[in-house]
Nucleic acid binder design. Structure first.
Lengths: 202, 202, 202, 202
DNA sequence: GATGAATGAGGGTTCATTCAT
DNA sequence: TATGAATGAACCCTCATTCAT
């Protein structure tokens, strides 16, 4: 009985936290990557005062960190899941690419948040740590697949190529979504893989 | 006589402006991509008061805009010059890639300024306009070279691939310079071009 | 029966109040005489929410007032008891001095609370009233003893001297406990009494 | 010429700083030893916004520290001067006592500031350092005089007695100025000295 | 009785900008 | 040209208090 109450409380609290996190992402998108203010965030979340934030998060930085953990973590989870479902090495690579260009990552809001995140990585140690984790997982999954497709000594090099093209297309897309469609971006990446693997197997 | 005085004055004024622009870049680098404050900038420029800035620039935004014009313009000029020196289409492409990984663009400070610039493009219309110009020139030079190397209908697609990999490697390098050397980044780009052209000419 | 329940309830309530009062003193000591926050106090008392305080006290000021009543009242009671036990006028004066330097008043926490109290007297009317009561009792006890030792017209003057030296040594001790030991402080006061009475009876 | 300008500027700045310091003391007195707010201070100084304070002081703590340096320093200077003017050891002790009860230290505002200062010494390290300096000088002057009046081994003990009675009377006076006049306080101290020296020379 | 949610006021600080000199 | 003075807006954060459960 007590347990139920506590779970409900816990759940309720998490719901409100999630609402604030969502509000944060929403505001980041809306104000164009500028530092979101707590006032705007709490207003968006339907709360009346910015002081409520400290009820749920230690401070602004903590809110931002948890927002990114939620966001990047969501992507990471989806990616790992997709890759795991790949039957062959090549399929796994495709899955990884697909994850990067998945609809959930391509909404205007998601793009804004990614840009916000990347732009702050060099300044924000919390963000940097998240980025390191993200990159570790991505590069790891990629290498595990590549190792069966290319000579050992070329794995690192190929992995870097694939990651780079994904990041690059993402950046291009974010800088001006009208310049390139996601489909094209997706295709370019796949083609690159083909080309690289093609020339690596004489 | 008066003209000479005015020219001197004008020249002097430009010198001071350049000093402030350099100070701006210096501070951007030092404070880690955070919004530089006028106080920090004027201090770095050896001026004692931040109010002096409005003698040379309308406001902070104007200073930032001119800083980016100076910085991005410098890169653009160098790039155009290098490409023009290329004897063949392929050489021109190499030249364009070389320009992107040129030493002048790879100092820690230059990397910081690039990141600052890119991160603000979605927020700052002035920056966005500069970015559009930059991209127009780059893509133009690239296409002029590609048109002689690949079928017409593939030019856009190839150009986008090359630009994307450059941007991607840049982003990777900026996020963590220790993860990849510029030499590797350079080589990956060149290899990509080879691979793409390779598979496009069976 | 009902009465018993109510008494128990009343007793329980008083226990909780006392816990909060103790917590208040504990926090005052720990945070170094700064204004204690209700959050810190309720946390120290083992309660999870600061809002519980208003169940037991009207508001923060009331809690502080009752804390001081408890603390100063404790000292006052002890002092009155000690003085009453004195057999002669001189013994009563000694008892009064002893009470001021009694172990219970000399713990680091007690010193902090005294300092907090004195420092707030000029600001806090509740505290001021408590201080007036304290002083009234002390000076009264002192004068009743002195009246048998010195000429009538000098009683006020002597009383003031003794009280002042006690307060002064206390302040000195509180400002830096390492500068003077309590034993020395005690001795100085006794000596003063001797000296004063000595010269008053040629 | 330039020097004159700089001096004027410097002087002007110091004038404004002094105004803010005076405003701080004024507000401390008026709001009854509570932490003065920058808004109240700048308002009192005739400035419109609290932000101006950071033009002259790093932050609030710095303003408070300099206020106390100014205030306590003023007393210390006066005391040292008075003591130096004393012709004999006894005169020097009288001078020290006089300094403590000098009119400049006995205005209602001065009393408030002293109470504010003492109350914060245990919390504020800057204040503590000032207090240590003050006490060092006072005790030093006192001992130099006492050494010619009482046996060597009693100097410390006597000095502590005198300081304590001064502090005590001060505290008494501050807690309720109506309870004791400064004249009486002064007389009590002098009498104590007589009494102590009297009994020390059998 | 006890908890967590929510509010609103207030404070210190930063900063771009304007103005007088 | 250059400086220092001054302003006002904005922001984050703390905290006592109230309310529903």
């Amino acid at each position: 009985m007590l347990k139920t109450v506590m779970q409900n409380t816990r759940k309720k609290q998490n719901i409100r936290k999630k609402e604030l996190i969502n509000a944060t992402m929403s505001i980041i998108h809306e104000t164009g990557l500028a530092d979101p203010t707590l006032a705007a965030i709490s207003d968006r979340a339907g709360l009346s005062s910015s002081s409520i934030v400290s009820h749920y998060f230690k401070n602004k930085q903590e809110l931002l960190k948890e927002t990114m953990l939620d966001f990047v973590g969501g992507f990471l989870g989806e990616m790992v899941f997709r890759v795991a479902a790949g039957k062959s090495p090549l399929e796994k690579i495709y899955a990884l690419i697909d994850a990067n260009f998945a609809p959930s990552q391509c909404t205007p809001e998601a793009i804004s948040v990614w840009m916000f995140f990347w732009g702050r990585v060099p300044v924000n140690e919390d963000f940097a740590e998240i980025e390191r984790t993200l990159e570790k997982y991505m590069i790891n999954e990629l290498k595990q697949a590549l190792i069966e497709l290319v000579p050992n000594e070329q794995v690192d090099y190929f992995a870097e190529s694939v990651i780079a093209i994904i990041y690059g297309l993402w950046l291009r897309f974010a800088l001006d979504p009208k310049r390139i469609t996601l489909e094209t971006a997706h295709k370019i990446t796949i083609d690159l893989v083909h080309a690289r693997i093609g020339i690596s197997k004489p």
